[in-house]
Simulated scan of single mutants.
Amino acid sequence: MQRGKTIWYTIAVTSVASLLLLSSGAILAFQNGPTSATENSGPHRQDSPAAQQMNPVKEESIPAASPADVKGDYRIVALGDSLTRGAGDETGQGYVGYLTTELQKMTKNKVITTNLGINGMKAPELLQYIQSPEVQKEIKAAHLITLSIGGNDLVRGAGPVTTTPNPGLAKQTQDQFLNTLDQILKEIRSQNEQSPILFVGLYNPFPLSDDQQKTALRILEEWNSKTSQVLSKYQHTLLVPTQDLFTWNSSKFLAADNFHPNGQGYKAIAMRMLQDLK
């Protein structure tokens, strides 16, 4: 009789333990959720939490966001147009210079920046530019890649945005740009699969009338939104928004040309990039 009680007691304890184990697994699965498809540009297998513990991600597959996490020099490659070049900054630093200064504070190692920005550059020109062996060498060695492109495409292709923004023309220009941007990112990732890419979003520097302003902002918002969707196809790639910075601080953040940022404007962009990088 005593032996029978022991058997039933053992069965009961085992059942409760199993139930608790299954409940814990369900809670973990709910908390972790499925991996977002935007975090990986290609098809991937969805592993369970237990399988992920058995097959941990290799450290070398995770990009180093901080220079302190890199052995030796930390390399930044800046690609794009006049925003990358730093046009309008009376100090000559631009967002690339301010970002470099802040990242240098994080490590005793040297932060090396290669600024390849070119004033007036459009997306098709950048695509051709990054296919040169010299630029590809820089991209391969980079721990961080920054990118600003599209402003010249929009301004030159969407009609006179300072007077009468043309949504139809802007849409056509946008589609062409997005297709080229996808090719640019594909080319960069063919040279460097893991390093973070920070893309500087567009802002509207033009003081327009109410109706024109609404139209211009709709064009800009859709442009940035569609750009972000293309970026999401590539892992560790992010759009850094800037429109709000200049909406409320245009008089303080714009250079004398009322188009490019000044030193304060570039510093604000760099600090936002640093936040996103962290």
Rank of each mutant, 00 (worst) to 15 (best):
G88C: 10
L99N: 03
L103E: 00
L103R: 04
T91D: 10
V70Y: 04
I76Q: 05
P133Q: 09
D73H: 14
A68G: 09
D89L: 07
A78F: 01
K110F: 12
T84R: 00
Y95G: 01
T84C: 05
D81T: 10
Y95F: 11
G86A: 05
D81N: 12
A65Q: 11
N109Y: 13
I62A: 11
T113K: 06
K110G: 08
G120K: 12
G117T: 09
D81G: 00
G94H: 01
A123P: 03
D81R: 04
A64E: 14
D69I: 05
P63H: 04
A64R: 15
V77E: 04
R85Y: 15
K108F: 11
G80Q: 00
T107Y: 01
A123E: 01
G86R: 04
I130K: 03
G86F: 00
L127V: 10
G72P: 06
M121R: 12
Y95T: 02
G94F: 02
T101Q: 15
P124N: 07
P124S: 02
T100Y: 01
Y95M: 05
I130N: 02
G117H: 06
P63L: 05
D73A: 15
S82H: 09
A87N: 10
N109T: 15
V70M: 02
L126I: 04
M106T: 12
L79Y: 03
Q128S: 15
S61P: 03
I62D: 02
Y129D: 10
T84N: 06
T107N: 04
T113A: 12
Y129V: 07
E134R: 10
G97R: 04
P63K: 07
Y129S: 10
S61L: 15
Q128V: 10
P133E: 08
E60H: 14
S61Q: 15
K122G: 06
T101K: 14
G117S: 11
G72W: 09
N115D: 13
Y98E: 04
N109F: 14
L103C: 06
K71A: 15
G94M: 06
K71F: 13
K105W: 07
P133R: 08
A78I: 03
V77Q: 00
S61V: 14
R75A: 10
A65Y: 13
E125V: 14
Q104S: 09
T107Q: 06
A123L: 06
E125L: 13
G92V: 08
V77T: 00
D69T: 12
Y98C: 01
Q131F: 11
Q131V: 08
G94S: 03
G97K: 05
N119S: 13
R85W: 13
Y95V: 05
I118E: 06
G97L: 06
L83V: 13
T114Y: 12
T91W: 00
V70Q: 07
K71T: 14
R75V: 12
K122P: 02
A87W: 02
L127I: 10
A78R: 01
Q131H: 12
D89G: 08
G94K: 00
K71E: 15
K108S: 14
K105C: 07
D69Y: 10
Q128D: 13
N109S: 15
G92N: 07
A123H: 07
Y95A: 01
K108A: 13
T101Y: 12
K105F: 11
E59T: 15
